[in-house]
């Protein structure tokens, strides 16, 4: 096992279900925190996009949960954990364009089916664990100081 790196910064945010008015506040806060820590614009942008997509998924589909921002010496981690329906087929849900969003959400420009793909595309390490009827946990990691293509 590699030795764990030092935690520089930790924040926990609660996410309320179906509260589209407040949706986006966690990602905006995370963006601000990372800028204050002196992260590069590229890291801030990637983390913000990951966070926004994860936050929107929790607002639209879950019964609520929390987002944890963990900044270590060598990485930025975002952990999303919700109570809710879970994801039966994670591979299917991760396919670009696949969506179970209701019409009202699509009309507002959500639920186009690119959320999980966007999270994965902006992460260096990405893992979803889910149990149907219980909830979903997503861990997205951005490694600092390595090239990102």
């Amino acid at each position: 096992m590699p030795s764990p790196t030092r935690v520089i910064h930790k924040r926990i945010y609660e996410v309320a279900p179906r509260d589209l008015e407040r949706a986006g506040t966690v990602s905006t806060a995370v963006r601000r925190e990372l800028l204050a820590l002196g992260m590069t614009p590229d890291i801030v942008r990637r983390a913000s996009i990951i966070c926004f997509e994860g936050e929107m998924n929790m607002v639209l589909y879950s019964e609520g949960g929390r987002i944890i921002l963990l900044v270590r010496d060598d990485r930025v981690e975002l952990l999303f954990s919700d109570r809710g329906p879970g994801i039966a087929d994670i591979d299917l849900a991760s396919q670009p364009g696949y969506s179970t969003a209701p019409d009202w959400a699509r009309e507002l420009g959500f639920g186009a089916g690119f959320g999980i793909n966007n999270m994965e595309q902006n992460s260096d390490l990405f893992k979803i664990r889910s149990r149907v009827g219980e909830g979903t946990v997503v861990r997205a990691t951005i490694l600092l100081g390595i090239p990102f293509f």
């Binding site: 589209l20 008015e21 949706a23 986006g24 506040t25 990602s27 905006t28 614009p41 942008r45 996009i49 926004f52 997509e53 929107m56 507002l108 420009g109 959500f110 186009a112 089916g113 690119f114 959320g115 793909n117 966007n118 595309q121």
Partner: peptide, 27 residues
């Protein structure tokens, strides 16, 4: 589509959209 904008718009673009809700500001 908000996810499409997050994936493909570039910093410094003018974003032309019919969406007018609060999340547009966040994106």
């Amino acid at each position: 589509l908000l996810s499409d904008v997050l994936a493909h718009a570039q910093a410094g673009d003018l974003w032309i959209t019919h969406q007018r809700h609060l999340n547009v500001i966040a994106v």
